[in-house]
Amino acid sequence: MAVKIIESCVNCFACEPVCPSKAIYEAKPHFLVDAKKCTECEGDFPDYQCASICPIEGAILDSLGLAINPPGSLTGIPPEKMAEAMAELQSH
């Protein structure tokens, strides 16, 4: 039972201080979760604290490997709109 931070993490430090179990640590190329320490906030908070402050969609996965903040859930940008804008930029 542990969450996981993946490569889309931008190293903003926001999650590190809010973890009740001190399971998150600075590492290269991005922050990591110590799976032995992570409790998924059980007993402390109803929501994953790291995933409640993380600004990057998809950067934190739950124990099933699913994005806790899926595309579009934080920025409000519909994923298809984002894909369209990126395709438009790359075509130049």
Binding site: N11, C12, A14, P17, I53, P55, T75, G76
Partner: peptide, 9 residues
Amino acid sequence: APACNIQCH
């Protein structure tokens, strides 16, 4: 100061 506590559009 890298961390933020809100998102702005």
